[in-house]
Write a protein that binds this DNA or RNA. Structure first.
Lengths: 210, 210
DNA sequence: GTCTATAGGGGGATAGAC
DNA sequence: GTCTATCCCCCTATAGAC
């Protein structure tokens, strides 16, 4: 871990350039299909420097993955554990924040979900960030709504899956959508903006459906 | 393409054994992370035979992918173009059939969607099977419902995304669900069976939501 | 810290015996 | 058709000069 000196504007150090390039390439191609040469080329640095700073391709990958998952969960737990905001408000914020987040890095979901499936070295099992979800205020509020009869289907996992599915899946399936439906990039982005408002409406309708 | 002789019971030929093993390994690890040695080991055949029958790893992969996509779309187009069945009935059939299909091969969705993202050799662009979707009876019926005011959101892509999201996404996110939520395999399978009935109910509720 | 050159190993593919 | 042995390229990683 090289010390990051005085970060005047943005960190333009070699270390950070490599990480930035690694994110781009790993997100797009996954670990196995990525060559260290790709990362070196993408960042404009020499191949040997990758090993100088990060020891190995695998070490660099683990670092990127850890930071990515952390970023993904970070402001989410903040939303989920807010005692003040209502259940409905949380749904709106989750949809809105996740969509904004993923629009900036559209490849993150498919990247994470495809790397997790063959988690040979048990990287994901040791990730600290994931447990708080189940004891969050959000889930307690969900439970309340179930007992009050405001939500028909009692299984909270169905609810969680549905919320994530409506929010995340469009990005995962966007290549297919563009291929089959001929949807353009700008069309797609506009649709995702629309969904910030649509998803909460849909979810609320689903809650009462039977 | 070796001729498949008289298939008495099930095709137990070497060629078919290799393909079967290739499906297993490709589905689980993706193209780049798969070694031809993995496939040989999985099928119990000699490594050289893979090249004897299929010329190269890439050729074998293309074959598997083509057959996979075809199977995925096959009975679906049949459902979508049935003039007799109602719009609602089609929704039920799609959810039910897709879930049955994916339960048998849970890795197919993440496999397809992660391979399509970096489609370097343009394999997916040349796939014949995908176009009929947009001119199907199903989409015409959707359009009717929009004009009749039975569906609030007019964009058919939102509808398609939502239906696929609720059906397919659970399988893609199942590793995460098992990790974070501690959901067991049997629990998960039961939930997927429940969703055959739940998804049509939810979708109908979403249609009228605003 | 950054470069060039190269070691070292893994993995796809093939030659050739049977 | 099936096997063993082997080729050879590509990719990660490191040695060593600057």
């Amino acid at each position: 871990m090289a010390k990051s000196k005085n970060a005047k504007t943005i960190d333009t150090s070699t270390e950070e350039k490599i990480k930035k390039a690694a994110r781009v390439v790993f997100y797009r191609k996954g670990f196995a299909a990525t060559r260290t040469r790709d990362i070196a080329e993408e960042s404009g640095i020499n191949l040997a420097l990758l090993n100088y700073y990060f020891r190995s391709k695998e070490k660099l990958f683990h670092l990127i993955m850890l930071e990515t998952v952390s970023g993904f969960v970070q402001n989410m737990t903040f939303i989920l554990n807010n005692e003040k905001s209502s259940f409905e408000k949380k749904i709106e914020l989750i949809a809105s924040n996740y969509i904004d987040f993923i629009v900036k890095e559209p490849n993150i979901p498919i990247f994470m979900l495809s790397e997790i499936r063959n988690d040979a070295d048990g990287l994901f099992e040791s990730l600290p960030v994931l447990q708080p979800l189940m004891q969050s205020v959000f889930f307690k509020q969900h439970q309340e709504y179930v007992t009050k009869g405001k939500i028909v289907e009692p299984n909270p996992f169905h609810f969680l899956i549905n919320l994530l599915a409506l929010t995340v899946f469009p990005f995962i399936s966007s290549p297919l959508l563009k291929l089959v439906g001929g949807v353009s990039n700008t069309q797609f982005e506009m649709m995702m903006q629309d969904r910030k408002k649509l998803i909460p409406v849909w979810i609320k309708a689903m809650m009462k459906a039977k």
